Simulated scan of single mutants.
Amino acid sequence: MVRFKNRWLLVEFLPCSPGTNATTYQPTAGNEMNSRQIWSALKQSVINNFGDIGWGAVSTSLTIKYYSPTTNVCIIRVARDQHQIAWGGVTFLSSIEGRKYIPNVIHVSGTIKQAQLAAIKHNREVVARYRSKAGTPATYQDSYETFLQTSTQEIEALQD
Rank of each mutant, 00 (worst) to 15 (best):
Val2Gly: 12
Arg3His: 15
Phe4Cys: 06
Lys5Pro: 05
Arg7Gln: 13
Trp8Tyr: 15
Trp8Thr: 09
Leu10Gly: 06
Leu10Thr: 03
Glu12Trp: 12
Phe13Trp: 00
Pro15Ser: 13
Pro15Glu: 14
Cys16Leu: 09
Gly19His: 07
Asn21Cys: 04
Asn21Ser: 11
Thr23Arg: 06
Thr24Ser: 14
Gln26Cys: 00
Gln26Leu: 03
Gln26Asp: 12
Pro27Lys: 10
Pro27Thr: 06
Pro27Ser: 14
Pro27Glu: 15
Gly30Ser: 11
Gly30Leu: 12
Glu32Thr: 09
Met33Gln: 02
Ser35Asp: 09
Ser35Glu: 13
Arg36Ile: 06
Trp39Cys: 04
Trp39Arg: 11
Ser40Ile: 00
Ala41Arg: 03
Ala41Lys: 01
Leu42Asp: 11
Lys43Ser: 09
Gln44Gly: 12
Ser45Ile: 02
Val46Ile: 14
Asn48Tyr: 13
Phe50Pro: 01
Gly51Met: 06
Ile53Trp: 15
Ile53Phe: 15
Gly54Ser: 09
Trp55Pro: 00
Trp55Ser: 01
Ala57Cys: 13
Val58Asn: 10
Thr60Asn: 08
Ser61Met: 00
Leu62Asp: 01
Tyr66Pro: 05
Tyr67Met: 00
Pro69Trp: 15
Pro69Tyr: 14
Thr70Met: 04
Asn72Arg: 00
Asn72Ala: 01
Cys74Tyr: 08
Ile76Ala: 08
Arg77Gln: 15
Val78Gln: 15
Val78Glu: 15
Val78Arg: 06
Ala79Arg: 03
Ala79Ile: 03
Arg80Phe: 09
Arg80Thr: 05
Arg80Tyr: 08
Gln82Trp: 08
His83Ser: 14
Gln84Glu: 10
Gln84Ile: 05
Ala86Pro: 07
Val90Glu: 07
Thr91Met: 10
Phe92Glu: 07
Glu97Leu: 01
Glu97Ile: 00
Ile102Trp: 02
Pro103Phe: 11
Pro103Thr: 06
Asn104Gln: 08
Val105Leu: 08
Val105Cys: 13
Ser109His: 06
Ser109Val: 02
Ser109Gly: 09
Gln114Phe: 07
Ala115Phe: 10
Leu117Asp: 15
Ala118Ser: 14
Ala119Pro: 04
Ile120Trp: 05
Asn123Ser: 09
Asn123Lys: 02
Glu125Gly: 03
Ala128His: 05
Ala128Leu: 04
Arg129Gln: 15
Tyr130Asp: 08
Ser132Val: 01
Ala134Trp: 01
Ala134Ile: 02
Ala134Cys: 03
Gly135Leu: 01
Gly135Glu: 11
Thr136Cys: 05
Thr136Ala: 07
Thr136Tyr: 05
Pro137Met: 00
Pro137Asn: 03
Tyr140Thr: 07
Gln141Glu: 12
Gln141Trp: 01
Gln141Met: 08
Ser143Lys: 12
Thr146Leu: 08
Gln149Met: 12
Gln149Glu: 12
Thr150Gly: 01
Thr150Asp: 06
Ser151Phe: 07
Gln153Lys: 05
Gln153Met: 02
Glu154Met: 10
Ile155Thr: 06
Glu156Met: 03
Ala157Met: 02
Ala157Asp: 14
Leu158Lys: 09
Asp160Thr: 09
